[in-house]
């Protein structure tokens, strides 16, 4: 999919307004119309977060979102929403605990792509790229490019099959599309859709289970579900136990030396 540059697609912009109820209320109350004629500054103001409510907790109090949760890599909100929805289907919230969104996985992936991993800095990148059906690592595309291409392709598939964006279709419909990506049945430029899906799946698990300092595994909830104790200095006292020993997980924040 080509990049539209500064031009914003009207249809998807309108849909995004509907997806975000607080923003829609603002639009309704003020009577402002979003369309092709709207000026950049008005539109820019609307698409920022300043009119949105903070996260509401169960007891009704509002908590500010963590200051580390803003997009570094993804310039388009619309791409990020697809990332949120796709990772949540790969690792959904259930009786075990939070899903990818609750664990901060989308922001984790955003941060990873903004760093050296996203541009394959430690990889050998000289051409020619001759592999047929390359994995993400072997592709001529960087990981950042693969994510952008893949997420936009997911939205395209949703539009063509269900006439609306990926974020708005039912979970079963989202799964159907993701399953087609996973089996390599969606045509993508430069890389197989299954290769993109493998990258997405792996990154999702990395976000769920890496140390919380990277932005995922929020509140160590991933490790709690996984019963992984994290950065524990010694297991010398329990290593020979016959029965399972459950431990509260410790992150590197509470392990590394600090001044």
């Amino acid at each position: 999919m080509t990049d539209n540059g500064n031009k914003i697609n009207n249809k998807s912009t309108e849909e995004k307004q509907e997806f975000d109820s607080s923003r829609r209320r603002f639009v309704k109350n003020t009577g402002m119309i979003i369309g092709g004629v709207a000026g950049g500054s008005v539109l820019g103001g609307l698409l920022t977060n300043q009119f949105q409510s903070d996260t509401e907790t169960t007891d009704g109090k509002k908590e500010p979102a963590p200051a580390t949760e803003a997009r570094m890599f993804f310039t388009r909100y619309e791409d990020f929403v697809v990332l949120e929805q796709a990772t949540e289907r790969i690792y959904p919230e259930d009786d075990n605990g939070p899903g990818a969104i609750g664990l901060g996985v989308p922001y984790f992936i955003d941060k990873q792509l903004a760093g050296k991993w996203g541009v394959n800095a430690k990889d050998y990148r000289q051409g020619p790229f001759l592999e047929s059906d390359p994995t993400a690592d072997m592709s001529s595309l960087t990981r950042g490019e693969i994510f952008i291409l893949g997420l936009r392709k997911i939205n395209e598939e949703s539009q063509s099959r269900f006439d609306t964006t990926f974020a708005k279709i039912e979970a079963e419909q989202q799964d159907e599309i993701l399953a087609n990506f996973a089996s390599g049945d969606v045509d993508m430029k430069g890389i197989g859709s299954n290769r993109f899906f493998d990258l997405l799946r792996t990154a999702t698990l990395e976000g769920a289970y890496s140390d919380p300092m990277y932005g995922g595994n929020r509140n160590i909830e991933g490790w709690k579900m996984k019963e992984f104790p994290g950065a524990v200095a010694s297991y010398a006292d329990i290593i020979d136990e016959e029965e399972f020993v459950k431990m509260d997980p410790v992150s590197l924040t509470n392990y590394q030396q600090k001044s």
């Binding site: 394959n120 990889d123 990148r125 000289q126 592999e131 994995t135 690592d137 072997m138």
Partner: peptide, 8 residues
């Protein structure tokens, strides 16, 4: 073809 990534 080159072995491009340690992650592979």
């Amino acid at each position: 073809t080159p072995h491009r990534s340690n992650e592979t």
